[in-house]
Nucleic acid binder design. Structure first.
Lengths: 146, 146
DNA sequence: ACGAGGTAGTTAAACCGTTAACCATCTCGG
DNA sequence: CCGAGATGGTTAACGGTTTAACTACCTCGT
């Protein structure tokens, strides 16, 4: 029976939604404009940079639907950044791995992406604010996992 | 020439992107499933709950493109939640205002939405964590405004 | 060893958002 | 007072995401 947030909670919540939305939008736009990559595509490339993965491992790691991963990888394959190959020991499975071009594009995109992250996040907070933010967001992320 | 983030910054940044993404996704899904509203539609309704607004004021307040607002409002008008009317003193302008049904739907959606926000955010943080999160996200939001 | 049910992945359609082009109206300097 | 440019708003085409249905393959109990 106490439905509403108090004013301070309101302000925090609004800052959170608006900040989260705009941050993701800016990062996505920067990757598109500067490197022709969606944030979703970029995240897939990052996961693949540690080695080849099954489609569904990929889907779990980035928490996207399998359908979405299929189509994101389709685009990456068309762009010659990722290679698909059938998995030997499970004939349903499909490996995805970076191509050389994929690794090269990711390397330059990643360097630039980090600069943007600094600009938008790291540089506007002092270090303990950043850690506090990180631990709060980790709790929220985990609370949305179930 | 120090391109990378240190491990702690990395963790904070990953918690931030992942948490932000999943939080927005969950809130959007909850509104859709429980009330047939997109988060974008919901935010428009919230702005209109204080009184009628011009399309472009609406666009500024929710920071969406005018085109997007036009189409979001289209859907809301089709659903009979919002009413459009030509603005008397500027014949280019268009007022948007809640219908009675719009106000009713917003009222019940808002109550329920707040419960979800508590579940996902307020209840998983202690109060000073929440204020710290809020002020950090406010800085990030403002840093993405330019 | 076989069939039921689970898992891996893809496909097609509908939906939402972005982009760019567009028309109508307003504003303001010359 | 008039025409250039700015502003308000819509439209259409396109791109990415979700959803649901579908195929192929694997697993495990019987």
């Amino acid at each position: 029976m106490t439905p509403w947030l108090d004013p301070a909670q309101q302000r925090s919540w609004r800052a959170l939604v608006e900040g989260a939305g705009q941050l993701l939008a800016r990062v996505d736009r920067h990757l598109r404009d500067a490197h022709g990559l969606t944030l979703a595509e970029y995240e897939i490339l990052v996961r693949l940079s540690e080695g080849h993965l099954h489609m569904s491992e990929l889907a779990d790691q980035v928490s996207h639907s399998r359908a979405r991963v299929t189509q994101t990888v389709d685009r990456l394959v068309r762009a010659d950044l990722v290679r698909r190959s059938p998995c030997p020991e499970d004939r349903r499975g499909v490996h995805a791995a970076l191509t050389d071009r994929g690794r090269a594009v990711l390397d330059t995109a990643a360097r630039d992406h980090v600069l943007e992250v600094r600009r938008l996040v790291i540089d506007v907070l002092d270090p303990d604010e950043l850690t506090a933010l990180g631990s709060a967001m980790a709790k929220i992320r985990d609370a949305t996992q179930d």
